[in-house]
Write a protein that binds this DNA or RNA. Structure first.
Lengths: 340, 340
DNA sequence: ATGAAAGCGCTAACAC
DNA sequence: GTGTTAGCGCTTTCAT
């Protein structure tokens, strides 16, 4: 490993000067500048990020903590976040907590504030206590994809109106004439995804459409779980003409379940999800869904985090930035209710 | 931020002692140990990873460089790699080069050897020159998923016999009676994925089955590109009864293309891919594919990298570890050739 | 325009 | 058992 000192020696100057030319700081004579640059080149010198980080206080890195990198939504978000981070010369490192709070805590303890200047948190299954502690130690955090613009999580966040997303989905189905609609919620009843379901229920209620306890299943954000839930739903309520899922993955699973029962989509069953992940476009038939502004939210989250970092962390209130509203993307999985 | 020194002060000892109790090194009296632990607790002290890294020489981190985190194969690999890395207390940070060699180089320059002890490289579109330079600076690198166990890339690597994978795919199709087989290769003709296609061609040739220039398309590892390529293939050669794709994503695209042309799968067209990503299981119909030992390869790559790190980097030859061979996973997308 | 020196927070000999 | 002392590689005043 080549060090600053070695470069300095070869160029016949002191480390301070090398540092200056590299960071384009202070005044350095053109001649020495060249000599230094040549030495850097000859030695293949690369600044030691860790040493620099120690001296400066932190590394130019943002951490993105996700609960499961296997969920295709996260990579899409990560991609957008990275693009924004790199604009300001920062690296984005993604930390996969594997749905395990202990791992999440380990990352938070170790990475936050040392290897990274700040952390973006995405459904990482960490309780607010851990987050608060990290925050207290002075590392900025922003919650990505908070689901309710109307209530603050008490932490800096980027919110998307998922209640509205649920509303849009319900309205779309209603407009197509559906009145017997099953629901698949990809979380616990009181989980983070509840707002989506509430929006859905609220809209049904306002329209005077019944939605009973047996019309809903609570499960996880995976294709297979959506498949299973849809099977149950379709068996329990054969009169269902549509299924709403709070996430695209289980919606896809519901489509498969329907297909396996010989139902045609959308003739026999309409299916709609939320998010508009890439798979929604690529499935057959294409999945109708409520598109969430993933890229915008990611960019906003990074920008907010960077603002907090500049700011030094002393905010009065936990700031919230609200991303653009979700919009309906109609594809081939939803259609008018079948004639009776 | 709480520092070691502050903890030491509060516990009435020196930093060295605190360090010792924290790292369970050296001998420390039980009483002082408790006092130190209490102080740590009271102050909410967390070791500063950067400082520790500087003092020790490197951070307990492995970097995984991928060209596009959006490709669902990478997360699966990353997941397995992370599990292995964490066994030895290391973190895995994934760096997305976004298919851009410049970004790749930036990551390599900045992260390798400073923020991370070693780097795992996955199709990251970096040329061997950059890798060699990094290696020369003393940071171990291992190439993951090298496609040819029989030829060394000149860098430490984990190889999977993708030639064999192509062979298996071809053999499967042949056994089902197909003789008019189209191919979709998810890379340039001379790209990394060439071995798969070579294995395929070799087997066809050995069986005396013709495969002409017009029966193949070179494209990219994405559903949409597979879709487009399949459309071209199916138009140009309407007599095709099967399509082999070097990757699952384009294979999925081919299935969609067939469906859109009113062809039934597998009655009218058989489709087979390589890798066995999760989507292959979840698609309808399920995609027959040649399963690659992703988890095993990831574990081996991490272990090899860790070995190189321990070793200090002075290897005689670039070591290669060969992962278990690919195996056929037959699902519903392949069937006997349609009767004529 | 360039150099000297202190220090970021921690570890690791070695001395007491 | 516990303290002392040197760094790790870099940045950053402050002199010169």
């Amino acid at each position: 490993m080549t060090t600053l000192a070695e470069v300095a020696a070869r160029a016949g100057v002191t480390p301070a000067t090398v540092s200056n030319v590299l960071r384009k700081r202070g005044k350095v004579g053109e001649a020495t500048r060249q000599r230094v640059l040549d030495a850097v080149d000859a030695l293949g010198y690369r600044p030691h990020l860790t040493a620099r980080a120690l001296a400066e206080g932190s590394a130019p890195t943002l951490a993105l903590m996700v609960s499961s990198i296997a969920n295709p939504f996260y990579p899409e978000f990560a991609l957008a976040a990275e693009r924004t981070a790199r604009k300001n010369g920062r690296f984005l490192i993604v930390c996969n907590t594997n749905e395990d709070p202990a791992i999440a805590r380990a990352y938070l303890d170790q990475i936050a504030g040392t290897l990274s200047e700040g952390v973006l948190v995405m459904n990482a299954r960490l309780d607010f206590d851990d987050l608060d502690k990290t925050l207290a130690r002075g590392t900025p955090i922003v919650l990505c994809m908070w689901e309710r613009p109307d209530v603050s999580p008490g932490l800096p966040c980027v919110a998307v109106d998922f209640f509205a997303a649920g509303t849009l989905a319900a309205r779309h189905l209603l407009e197509l004439g559906h009145t017997r609609i099953g629901a698949i919620v990809a979380s616990q009843r009181d989980g983070v995804q509840a707002a989506r379901y509430e929006g859905f229920c609220h809209t049904l209620r306002a329209a005077g459409v019944a939605h009973a306890e047996q019309d809903v299943r609570f499960t996880r954000d995976e294709v297979q779980h959506g498949y299973d839930a849809a099977c149950e739903l379709l068996s329990a309520c054969p009169d269902l003409t549509a299924i709403f899922a709070t996430n695209d993955l289980p919606a896809l699973g519901a489509m498969h379940a329907a297909a396996d029962r010989g139902m045609r989509i959308p003739e026999d069953l309409s299916v709609i999800g939320i998010t508009d992940i890439q798979l929604a476009r690529e499935s057959r038939p294409g999945l109708s869904t409520i598109a969430v502004p993933t890229d915008a939210a990611a960019a906003m989250a990074v920008e907010l985090l960077e603002a907090l970092i500049e700011n030094g962390g002393r905010e009065k209130e936990a700031p919230m930035r609200v991303a653009p509203d979700p919009v309906l993307v109609q594809r081939a999985s939803t259609g008018r209710v079948r004639g009776v």
